[in-house]
Design a protein around this nucleic acid. Structure first.
Lengths: 197, 197
DNA sequence: AAAGATAATAACACACTGTATTAAAAAAAG
DNA sequence: CTTTTTTTAATACAGTGTGTTATTATCTTT
């Protein structure tokens, strides 16, 4: 029988190599050949672990979502629900270099998903995820009595998730006009308008 | 002297050819060679009118923004200011096939602008444009007494433009979850929450 | 009308990209 | 040691954007 190799571990190694390139040279430089070189293997070898680039992108996204989750699990949230909600939402916005990269990867991923069936499923999963998160926030605010329970939770959630997504978009495109403080201000403002409505 | 040819007219011809391809086969198919073939010329000939692809993209964007402006100039807006504002905002969201294409072109354009200096200026111009439009809408609502003049117009405009951008994003990515009616509903809902605040 | 200038074009070459195929190498089990 | 299967390497292919070169075509000037 052949050499026993932990496939998933090797895939993670490749994902880290790819991430490194994306971080330093931008996502458009993360070609299969380039990633393979960074991971210390031949393109053919990489192809053995990811038979297509979309597959690789998919794994990278999944891997670093996992990492992000671990990060936020170790985080301590404010006791104040309004503030805690704000903190959670800020996790979705590119207010630091790491989140900027994540956002731009998510962006190119989303765009590719429009024409790649392999990515569609994950795209749906992820867009559902942001909605669900927004929905959770709305529910928390309702439970805490900050938001009246007469409001349409679905509409509020759609509005909130769109707002956050749009802010991400603007913050990434116009970091000069939308610095972290500004983004925080808008989110904070939005949450305040929900107060006792 | 050489043959006198209307450069701009030829560029428009190329832009139309490119648009046709984008419309039917997606923007990723709109390569220089492909566009040249569609426009009935050689790649080298096209290069004579656009020395780089970014230049071509730039022109396409500008050309079809102009077309969009002409379209909306001929449009009749509601007398009711709240409804008129809603109608204007809906012009920015991919609720029909034409706007879907425009949005996805804008999307890829914005992404490219992150790594292409040639596109940066236009990107800024366009993002400013969406903010300015949102700002105009807020001002109108304030003038009409629908929105209290004590609100922070800048924050309100930022929020509105982010909301619209985010809705565009979601509508393009998840047309099943965000059909036109849903998008309209969210925008309409948002405008209602502004009422007399 | 002939000559000259230059815009317009075509035909390449170059270094990339993702994908696919093929043959060689390596490693574990019998 | 032989066999079996995985892993690797080396290519090939069609496509991309970009750049260079030489040719063609056309209008103005002499």
């Amino acid at each position: 029988m052949p050499k026993m190799i932990n496939h998933d571990q090797k895939r993670k190694l490749i994902a880290e190599a790819a991430w490194k390139i994306i971080e330093n040279e931008g996502i458009e430089k993360a070609s299969i050949r380039r990633v393979a070189a960074e991971a210390g293997m031949s393109p053919g070898a990489l192809r053995h672990y990811f038979s297509t680039k979309d597959e690789m992108l998919l794994f990278i996204i999944e891997y670093f979502i996992e990492e992000g989750k671990k990060r936020s699990d170790h985080k301590e949230w404010s006791k104040n629900p309004l503030q805690a909600v704000e903190e959670v939402l800020l996790e979705l916005v590119p207010i630091d270099e790491e989140k900027k990269i994540e956002t731009s990867v998510w962006w190119i991923f989303a765009f590719r998903s429009l024409t790649s069936d392999a990515l569609k499923e994950k795209k749906d999963e992820m867009t559902d995820g942001t909605y669900d998160l927004a929905n959770s926030m709305i529910k928390i605010l309702t439970l805490k009595g900050i938001l009246s329970d007469s409001v349409n939770a679905d509409l509020e959630s759609s509005r909130l998730s769109a707002l956050v997504e749009g802010l991400s978009f603007h913050a990434l495109l116009r970091p000069d006009v939308y610095p972290p403080e500004k983004v925080k201000e808008v989110i904070s403002y939005h949450l305040k308008t929900l107060y006792n409505k």
